[in-house]
Amino acid sequence: MQRKVFQLLVDNQAGVLSRISGLFSRRGYNIESITAGTTSDPRYTRITIVANGDEAILDQIEKQVGKLIDVRKVMELKPDSSVFRELILIKVKATDNQRQAIVSVSDIFRAKIIDVDMDSMIIELTGNQSKIEAFLDLLKGYEILQIARTGIAGLTRGAADV
């Protein structure tokens, strides 16, 4: 089982995301995360998909996605020539005497406290996946109430444009 990050440039129009997600579900491909947003050129949307499977499946994913009429380009984002970031929001239970410890851990990870009330707080963290996993590990001693993650967004390094 391997994991690959694909970047897609697609026409920015209704139904594109459903065509892509429909393709994954009907062909039984595993999708780990999908993020989408318009590019600097409003005619296009950039989509980052993290998928896993064996070599043959990942090859098929690239070909079948590339075959969709709305997909202009599909490429693999290779870890050594790309940057990946994910954003996570964590709502954690925090009593008076827990609060300071949580803030300290968050500081080390350069996470931000974006909301606090009497017995909980919301932490925002941006980073690559290993950083996020490490941070979540450290929070295990506390009671996590809710988590929201965006999934990975990625770009290739350097000036080359997709």
């Binding site: 043959a56 090859d59 098929q60 070909k63 079948q64 590339g66 075959k67």
Partner: peptide, 11 residues
């Protein structure tokens, strides 16, 4: 004519 057919069912 379809690149996705190549390697789909047999290498």
């Amino acid at each position: 004519v379809d690149p996705a057919e190549i390697g789909k069912n047999v290498g």
